[in-house]
Amino acid sequence: MGKLLFWIVLIILVLFVARIAGRIAADRQAGAKAADGKKPGRGAPPPPKTLESMVRCAHCGIHLPRSEALLQNGQTWCSADHARLGPAKH
């Protein structure tokens, strides 16, 4: 029973070391590609996202990015239907 347990632990240890070695090799290869100006590897940070101002729909009040809003008569709308319906009456 002791020998069986020894071999199981040894096999798991060998697989674990092989997995770590594979990750190190992949990181080195990705680092070499990043130095050549190609796609960044797993460890590289993502490019920064640009911030966009949010606007409020004059009809329903939902906030959406300015690039997705519809601007008519000095007011912003989330859709053409809401622009047609006009401002909400509270």
Results as ranks from 00 to 15, higher is better:
Q75C: 01
M54T: 12
R66H: 07
I20Q: 09
P45W: 06
K38R: 15
P45E: 08
F6L: 13
K3I: 13
P65C: 01
V55E: 01
R28P: 07
G86L: 04
C60N: 02
A35V: 08
R42T: 12
A21G: 10
A83H: 03
R56C: 11
G31H: 01
L4W: 13
H90R: 14
I24G: 05
G86C: 07
G31E: 03
G41D: 00
L4C: 13
P40Y: 01
V9Y: 06
C57K: 02
A44E: 13
A44L: 10
Q75P: 05
P46E: 14
R23C: 13
K3Y: 15
K38L: 15
A69D: 03
G41R: 01
S67K: 04
T50H: 09
C57M: 00
R23E: 15
G37D: 02
Q29M: 11
L4D: 14
S67V: 05
Q72L: 12
F6Y: 10
C57F: 03
P40E: 02
G41H: 05
F16C: 11
S53L: 13
L15V: 05
K89C: 04
M1I: 11
T76Q: 00
K39E: 15
A25M: 11
M54C: 04
C60L: 01
S53E: 15
A34G: 03
V14W: 06
C57N: 03
G41S: 03
G41W: 06
A88Q: 01
G43I: 12
A21Q: 04
H59F: 03
E52F: 09
V17E: 05
G41F: 00
A25T: 08
L85K: 08
L10W: 08
H63M: 13
A18Y: 01
K39S: 15
T50A: 15
